[in-house]
Amino acid sequence: MTKKLAQLLFFIYILGLVWLVLFKLSFHPFAFLEMTNTRSLNLTPLAMSGGRREVLFNILAFIPFGILLTMNAPKISFLNKLAISILLSFSFESLQYLLAIGATDITDLITNSLGALLGISFYYLLIKVFSKAKVDLILTISFTILLIFTIIFIRQSIVLGTVRV
């Protein structure tokens, strides 16, 4: 049961990440793509174009990716998990550039990858201290609760009119 729920959570998380990174939480992604025509490329690492807050947000947004990837793919090596994380971030940044939907920034690639690395490392640290089954159960419950609160928050934001549908 825990394994299936962890897989579902990973799938939902990936969809949420796509919605966040590519569509900037727009409820009308195709309209968003039509309205957005911004293409920029920053290849200067840590130029801090979005500021420290954006750097921290990027790291925090990708920590769950590292955790969920490691939970769902225990047989993949640490380096391959890191490579998958970097590839995902690179794909997001490339798509932003190709679709002209925002800034493509090397700092985002670095910070997203760092967040995933922290998530992977955190999971490995937890299973060194506790059993894998216990860690998986606690993390799956935690992510499920977080997902429920996120859905409630989004719904409440729509009802209060702070988010346009």
Rank of each mutant, 00 (worst) to 15 (best):
T2F: 11
T2D: 01
T2W: 14
K3T: 08
A6S: 15
L9P: 11
F11L: 13
Y13I: 00
Y13Q: 07
Y13P: 02
I14P: 08
L15H: 02
V21P: 09
V21E: 15
L22K: 10
F23K: 06
F23I: 09
K24Y: 12
K24S: 08
S26I: 04
F27V: 03
F27L: 12
F30K: 10
F32D: 05
F32I: 02
N37V: 01
T38Y: 14
T38P: 00
T38F: 13
T38H: 12
R39W: 13
L41Q: 06
L41V: 15
L43G: 07
T44Q: 13
P45Q: 07
P45L: 01
M48Q: 10
S49W: 05
G50S: 01
G50V: 00
G50Q: 08
R52W: 14
R52H: 08
V55D: 11
L56P: 03
F57I: 06
N58W: 04
L60S: 09
A61C: 07
A61D: 03
F65I: 05
T70A: 10
M71T: 12
N72M: 00
N72E: 01
A73V: 09
A73S: 15
L79Q: 11
L79M: 13
N80H: 10
I84C: 02
S85D: 12
L88S: 02
L88Q: 03
L88Y: 10
S91M: 12
Y97M: 05
Y97A: 04
I101R: 11
I101K: 08
A103E: 10
D105K: 06
D105W: 05
D105P: 03
I106Q: 08
T107G: 11
D108Q: 10
D108P: 10
L109F: 10
I110F: 14
I110K: 07
I110R: 06
A116I: 07
A116T: 08
I120D: 08
Y123V: 01
L125H: 09
K128I: 01
K132M: 00
K134F: 12
V135W: 01
L137G: 02
I138R: 11
L139H: 03
T140W: 02
I141S: 00
F143D: 02
I145H: 04
L146F: 15
L146I: 06
L146P: 04
I148W: 09
R155D: 09
Q156P: 00
Q156K: 07
Q156W: 11
I158H: 15
V159D: 10
T162F: 13
